[in-house]
């Protein structure tokens, strides 16, 4: 057999194995990444989706955050403006989590309609970038005048 053919066969074996591993682990680890609205629709369509792991990206509803002072337990509501779910999470809470950030939670929607999260990622829009769009200068200015404080994080949202 020509060495080139042999190499190609070897290459195919390597790539085939990699592809097989990829396909297998996609099946094993893939989870839906939904908005609350999509989650609502999916659950209506297929109640079995409750108690299966999903990821949900949404915004925390301001004022709903109940933190346990241990720093390891938090409950809040998340919404995309169309559907709202209560979330309970136990674990280390990321520094960037607050009552006005976007979060990505991974966990299960319980039969009681409460989303029990096993991971909580907070994606703070201003984490690296300050208020790119909708930076309401007038509002910030007003707040600045009223309080004498510098524009803070929340002013940008």
């Amino acid at each position: 057999m020509h060495p080139r053919t042999k190499f190609l066969i070897g290459g195919l074996i390597v790539l085939g194995t990699a592809g097989w591993l990829m396909a297998g682990s996609i099946k094993a680890t893939a989870v839906y990444f939904l908005t609350p609205e999509e989650l609502q629709a999916k659950v209506l369509e297929d109640p079995g989706l409750r108690e299966t792991g999903v990821k949900v990206g949404a915004r925390v509803v301001a004022g709903t955050v109940e933190r346990d002072s241990s720093g390891k337990r938090v409950a809040f509501e998340m919404t995309d403006g169309k559907a709202t779910y209560r979330v309970e999470y136990v674990g280390l809470i990321p520094d960037t989590f607050s009552d006005s950030v976007d979060v990505v939670v991974e966990g299960r929607l319980g039969a009681d309609g409460v989303f029990r999260a096993t991971t909580l990622l907070a994606k703070c829009a201003s984490r690296y970038e300050a208020a790119p769009e909708g930076y309401d200068t007038a509002k910030v200015h007003e707040q600045y005048r009223a309080t004498g404080a510098a524009p803070t994080d929340t002013a940008s949202r």
Partner: peptide, 11 residues
């Protein structure tokens, strides 16, 4: 649909 850490590790 997202894949997790275990996908990257498995491959």
């Amino acid at each position: 649909i997202t894949v997790g850490e275990s996908f990257f590790n498995a491959v």
